[in-house]
Design a protein around this nucleic acid. Structure first.
Lengths: 111, 111
DNA sequence: TTATTATGATTCATATACAGAGCATTAATA
DNA sequence: TATTAATGCTCTGTATATGAATCATAATAA
């Protein structure tokens, strides 16, 4: 039973989401694609596209990334179009680290 | 009434989301922060953190970005910590473009 | 080894994000 | 100018993501 949720977001989070939405709108406009058309292409409603372009924090990340992909925005600047290499390398690094993290009870430098 | 939804995602979208989740887990592990602790810090449940680290596409973008921020991942490589400049510049560019996009009925180069 | 904590996975109830429709306003073209 | 499509809003019902609880397993530290 999720208690009524009221999240707080850092400024950076809000700005990053806002910027991504703006970039989508910018690219869409430059390409002369209507909101209706892009929404259809992404399989979402026009209303949702509007919220995303405004930087709404509560939208599915998959949909936002899909829109970015459709208008040709490169997330994670990678030379090639595939992120598989990145993923594999991260996976390997992760495999070398301890599987569990032990909580040192001292007040540490976590944050 | 949302009809039962079944989205499709491009490979790039899936990989980008997956990579971001992995990076969060990697940074968290390197810093020896437990999943429980990071979840608490972000104001979310441990289950949700798990889904995000696995690359679940249906999580709120705000929460994912907040986690990334907490473990010090830079989205949109910007020299300074603020994205305000970026936002303003995008805003200005957008202001110069036509407010409405007109749909040319020809089959065009949209995609 | 043993004790204890972290992780992974599942289930359920509910808060909420979504699609769809409608309406008013704006602005591009003819 | 007039026409008409695009955009920006609201609102409502419902599909679904989330918090909480639980259990099993893994793995760290003593």
């Amino acid at each position: 039973m999720p208690k009524s949720i009221n999240r707080t977001y850092s400024r950076y989070t809000r700005e990053a989401t806002r910027l991504l939405g703006q970039m989508i709108k910018l690219k869409r406009t430059k390409r002369k694609i209507t909101a209706k058309d892009l929404a259809e292409r992404a399989g979402i409603s026009r209303g949702l596209l509007q919220r995303i372009e405004k930087g709404d924090l509560k939208c599915e990340i998959g949909v936002v990334f899909e829109l970015a992909t459709l208008v040709d925005i490169k997330l994670f600047d990678a030379d090639n179009s595939s992120l598989t290499g990145h993923i594999n390398r991260t996976e390997e690094t992760l495999a070398l680290l301890p599987k569990h993290v032990r909580n040192t009870k001292e007040v540490d430098d976590e944050f």
